[in-house]
Write a protein that binds this DNA or RNA. Sequence first.
DNA 1: CAGTGGTCTAGACCACGTG
DNA 2: ACGTGGTCTAGACCACTGC
Lengths: 224, 224
Amino acid sequence: MRKPIYVRIKQQIQKEIENKKANDVIESERLLSKRLGASRMTVRKSLDELVEEGYLYRKENVGTFVADRSLRKRNTSLLSDNDANLEYRLINFDVKYGMKNKILEKLNLTDQDSFSIIRAIRLVLKNDKPQQVEEFYMIRNYINEKHINQFDKLLDLSQYLKKGRMTQRFIPTKVPPKYAASLKVTMDEPILMIEGRIFDNQGTPFIYYRSYNNPREKTVEITI
Amino acid sequence: MRKPIYVRIKQQIQKEIENKKANDVIESERLLSKRLGASRMTVRKSLDELVEEGYLYRKENVGTFVADRSLRKRNTSLLSDNDANLEYRLINFDVKYGMKNKILEKLNLTDQDSFSIIRAIRLVLKNDKPQQVEEFYMIRNYINEKHINQFDKLLDLSQYLKKGRMTQRFIPTKVPPKYAASLKVTMDEPILMIEGRIFDNQGTPFIYYRSYNNPREKTVEITI
DNA sequence: CAGTGGTCTAGACCACGTG
DNA sequence: ACGTGGTCTAGACCACTGC
């Protein structure tokens, strides 16, 4: 399927507002419609999405304005930080047919079921400082086989969110001894563990992950 | 302004799917349009919102289906838990013209500015068990004067989110001594503090809050 | 008064999944 | 082949703001 017009227009507007200051007014919907050669409803669909994502805001009967950059949505910041300074160091990768019961429960599986699970564990660093350790457990037949050998694609969770939903839990705890050294955190220090699951539309979980965050280095923040 | 048609239709559909099971198919957009007497685009707008909020999901070229209840969006669950069992106990309420610098910084204020800040602190209980302590700091001239004496309305943050945005930080820490007794938590136990700010469209913060969550009682979870 | 965003209509064509 | 969701059009009226 070729790219819809409203996506092209959305990207076009996104590009144009990069040069504008926060709270600058942009062209009216009718002008954009004329200039970009699309109906007003199509332009509106583009604007709707940009408003939803925090790029723009509207004042009724007045106009559409550029939003402050800090207000753009980042509700998946925990994992898909688009930060060029991040380095990922794989600690463990395997495909298993069994798994600890604690993990199976999270994926609504029992050891009677037939399944195989991809497990990946990685350390995330920023400017050589350890940020977090992430553990992923993914049910294999939900995963695109082509991605299994490309960790960056495999572990980019945003792709799975498009067609499903995610829950995240925030749990204060102590660092697991096995990760204390990697994270350079003392055993007694309280750290933040984030436990997440990704569900398909039917409500079946197919990815479970945990991340242990170094409180000295990483602030977990979301914008909604 | 009277209620738009798409809102009425949205509520209607919302009511109708309460009686359906997860993954049941609903009527097609064209049928809904005919039955409810609105154009297909209007029906679609209602459905779009219900999909966005996790009530429904669509399969291209196939149909629209009822989503699993657990997948409905709850990204503000931290505060506006619509849970009937919750009890709120006000600990402190005042309106001040000065405030600790740490708080002022969060609201982008200095003590040179002219302002007054509403401070409210409350304990949240569920079945008599302490869940969390919440501290709110709100710049007064952003707040509807009528609400100031109605704490439930004043502290319902969802109203402020409609026309602005919120950031939340998750910080593992130890319980502040002054709240240890209220929360029935020992001083050494790691607890989860959530720090949030609400911004207007211009990017100016006008509410700052903190919540200290009892890890034994309360699980902080969001669904996106 | 002119212009804005918000809503709404009655069509249309497309690609695709399922029977 | 038929029905579905996804996209798109070219209008329209409304309530409201700011000049």
